[in-house]
Amino acid sequence: MRNLKTVFSISIIVSLLFGCSSVKITDSWRGLKTLDVKNKNIMVVSKTEDRSIQIRFERDLVEELQENGFTCIESHVRFPFSDPTEKVGKDKTKEVIKKLRDNNIDVVIISHLVDSKRYTTLITTGETMYLDPFPYRYRRYRSFYGYSDSYYTQYHTTEQEGVTYVLETLVYDLTLPSENQLISVITSEVDNPSKLSVTSEDFSKVIVKNLIQ
């Protein structure tokens, strides 16, 4: 009679690992070779209807900028009653810029969601089994038969859905002429975010790294 027992289990991931947030830059443009904004007052804006997300993203980006020597503040702190998602027409743009300049804001960094893409990933798991060809009492005859331990692996494939969010970060220098105020555009992707705090911190680090290059 043959005896079958599990020795260990292994997991093989065919594609992306789920449950972890991954932030990466997919495109970047800047109007100036070097962004000369370190000595200017910066306001960070996260355009979202979710107040908790806005506060978290603005706070983490401001903290990361400050750690790198920038002077900045969150929009929800400077303008606590403003709506970051409110659309501003061309006729009111000058008015908004004047208000910002009157509040000692030189540079504005605005991040917003531009797209989301769902996808399906195949995850294959394998369980390795040990096959003992003989009962325990016959183990002393192993050398007579000359066999070696036998292993085999059973594989199982499952589908798991994920989502990638595409974010755009715009940097405006309000001290420049109006036609030159947009000085940088950064497009980034957040893959399958699992926790707001982790995603926000990772996003902040990636954006600031790009800005100081």
Results as ranks from 00 to 15, higher is better:
T124K: 14
T124G: 07
T125D: 14
G126W: 02
E127D: 12
M129R: 04
Y130G: 04
L131P: 01
L131D: 11
L131G: 01
D132V: 07
P133S: 05
P133N: 06
F134R: 05
P135D: 08
P135T: 11
Y136M: 09
R137A: 09
R137L: 11
R139G: 13
R140Q: 12
R140T: 08
R142A: 14
S143F: 07
S143M: 08
S143Y: 05
F144N: 13
Y145N: 08
Y147P: 04
Y147Q: 08
Y147V: 05
Y147M: 06
S148V: 13
S148L: 14
D149I: 15
D149T: 15
Y151L: 14
Y152W: 13
T153C: 02
T153I: 10
Q154Y: 12
Q154H: 12
Y155W: 06
T157W: 02
T157C: 04
T157I: 12
T158L: 09
T158K: 10
T158C: 08
T158D: 07
T158S: 12
E159Q: 09
Q160N: 08
Q160T: 09
E161A: 10
E161M: 13
G162R: 01
V163F: 01
V163A: 03
V163K: 07
V163H: 01
T164R: 04
Y165W: 09
Y165S: 02
V166D: 04
V166E: 10
V166L: 14
V166H: 06
L170I: 05
L170H: 03
V171M: 08
V171R: 00
V171S: 00
Y172R: 04
Y172H: 12
D173P: 00
T175G: 05
T175A: 05
L176K: 08
P177Y: 01
P177Q: 02
S178M: 13
E179M: 06
E179G: 03
N180V: 05
Q181P: 00
Q181R: 13
L182H: 00
L182G: 03
S184G: 11
I186R: 02
I186S: 00
I186V: 10
T187V: 09
T187A: 07
T187H: 14
S188G: 06
E189Q: 12
D191Y: 03
N192T: 07
N192P: 05
N192G: 03
P193C: 10
S194H: 11
S194W: 14
K195C: 12
L196D: 15
S197E: 15
S197F: 13
S197Y: 15
S197P: 06
S197T: 14
V198S: 09
V198L: 08
T199P: 01
T199H: 01
T199R: 02
T199C: 03
T199F: 01
T199N: 02
S200R: 03
S200Q: 02
S200T: 12
E201G: 10
E201V: 14
E201I: 12
D202W: 03
F203H: 09
S204M: 04
S204R: 03
S204H: 03
K205N: 11
K205L: 10
